[in-house]
Write a protein that binds this DNA or RNA. Sequence first.
DNA 1: TCCTATTGAATTGCGCGCAATCGAATTATC
DNA 2: GATAATTCGATTGCGCGCAATTCAATAGGA
Lengths: 157, 157
Amino acid sequence: MFPIDADAQTDAVADAPRVDDQLCFAVYAASHAFAKVYRPLLAELGLTYPQYLAMLVLWEADDCTVKAIGERLGLDSGTLTPLLKRLEAQGLVSRVRDADDERQVRIRLTPAGQALKPRAAKLPREIGRAIGRPLPEIIQLRQEIVRLRAALEAASA
Amino acid sequence: MFPIDADAQTDAVADAPRVDDQLCFAVYAASHAFAKVYRPLLAELGLTYPQYLAMLVLWEADDCTVKAIGERLGLDSGTLTPLLKRLEAQGLVSRVRDADDERQVRIRLTPAGQALKPRAAKLPREIGRAIGRPLPEIIQLRQEIVRLRAALEAASA
DNA sequence: TCCTATTGAATTGCGCGCAATCGAATTATC
DNA sequence: GATAATTCGATTGCGCGCAATTCAATAGGA
């Protein structure tokens, strides 16, 4: 028994771990599985999954800078700039340079972006039904994954 | 309290959920956090994270078809074909059409690909230390995430 | 046997995701 | 106030990840 990534491998030391035993792979596969469930539902709103995450941030706190969204989601400008431009092209957000600090670009919801909120709000509950497990369990699982993320981020810092 | 994706939101029905409360986001962020920890370690081996996953499959069972790797990792040919070509370009695998069924392409480790195995085998344990939690906990967490993935895949099928 | 359906890869197109770099704007130092 | 360092965002390049299409090879049925 070794503390191998996350897994229960018990074989000889020189053996490569089995992919199915890896915690990292379990998380990787679960993330893809989530995306696969969300994709068709989000397609009805004209959003991709990362675009949905950005909209979640804005629905919670409108008028953010790109940096603020990036910190919240863990994404950098190389990802967010084109993503936000696509949202702008769809008429869901506006992108204007801040008058006080022209380095910053403020992202604001348009009326169309606001209008999407109630439709999006119905979405997570549908997913919740799909998971089909009691809510307290789900909440606790989320907490443990959040702690896992924190430990990993501490390790890579 | 609603079964919202995965989260503990308690606000009014019309409100969009908060991103931090979402299980899907926790998993998404944890997956990125894993990638960030693995990336510099894998860079020493000249591999990306998905390439590492493909190599794990091959180290466990050499001489696979593209389809077999895809089923194991949940990836399709659009992702795997160029990925495997890059591994071939690095001299880690060979890609040859099966003589019996010329539709299939068999992927085999080269000596260089085999030689990478013991170096890669040391990797997960380093990560395990980074996580810094008792192994039984980790194993149980992995199990729950595997079950979550299964529920999601059942829902999107 | 011929015809059809199916299967396995490859290809194309688009959208992340990140490292590296750049340029403009701001702040700090002198 | 000139200079240097920092900050924010955009850009480029590369590698996934997936949907959709294409093509060759195989399997099945009349």
